[in-house]
């Protein structure tokens, strides 16, 4: 028995050093050399293109609602300091979904509130725009989700709908490699391109 115990402790120590720290540190080194921008979080001038933000102005396209953010519980309330999807302290900052089931009364009520919110913005929403994502900060929308927002953006900015449609088409990333996943648009990139048109 003692020999099993001794070997187990030695093995645990070797694994701790090698498969923990050597693996993670060498991996970090390689990642930082080869893909520094991605490894640091794909952060640009206005935030990370991989983390959704809370857009409230009708001058910009909006992303999907956050599970804990201003939409889901109360569509019109604003959270102090904006939407902090990944803030490191406090449960409201954890990534995550609503976890509401497909026959949940709460989900019906939340969805109705979100539909009403979009109607006040002059938008007839798609299902993506009234449901929360798995992470709570989905950075993307589908082209259809962007197209239904054209009346809102066009009215607030004065940019012609046809120009907005061209912009959406230009910012649409087709399915990866032509067949994987969905066709989608990064909301931050779309709005940065839109700001250039303003």
């Amino acid at each position: 028995m003692l020999v099993h115990l001794r070997r187990s402790i030695v093995m645990a120590l070797i694994a701790f050093v090698f498969f923990g720290f050597v693996y993670a540190f060498v991996g970090t080194g390689v990642a930082q050399v080869l893909f520094k921008h991605q490894a640091d979080g794909s952060i640009g001038a206005n935030g990370s293109m991989l983390i959704g933000q809370n857009w409230t102005s009708p001058k910009y396209f909006h992303g999907r609602p956050d599970d804990a953010g201003p939409y889901a519980a109360n569509p019109k309330a604003k959270i102090a300091g904006g939407d902090n999807p990944l803030v490191a302290n406090g449960s409201s900052g954890e990534s995550g979904a609503t976890n509401l089931g497909p026959r949940s009364k709460v989900l019906v009520a939340n969805t109705k509130a979100l539909i009403a919110y979009w109607h006040t913005m002059g938008v007839n929403p798609t299902s993506d725009l009234v449901t929360t994502s798995g992470s709570g900060y989905d950075p993307d929308i589908t082209p259809a989700d962007a197209l239904v927002q054209i009346p809102m953006v066009s009215k607030a900015t004065g940019i012609a709908p046809s120009r907005l449609r061209t912009l959406i088409a230009k910012e649409t990333q087709g399915q990866e490699l032509g067949f994987l996943g969905s066709s989608y648009i990064d909301v931050l990139q779309l709005n940065e391109a839109l700001a250039a048109l303003h």
Binding site: G47, I51, P85
Partner: peptide, 26 residues
């Protein structure tokens, strides 16, 4: 990582978006 997964030991990062006034701690 090449596709965009994060790999750093530098801790959280704070970013500000001038377009919408949102500040995020990621």
């Amino acid at each position: 990582v090449g596709q965009g997964a994060v790999q750093t030991l530098s801790g959280t990062v704070s970013v500000h978006d001038a377009l919408n006034g949102v500040t995020q701690t990621i």
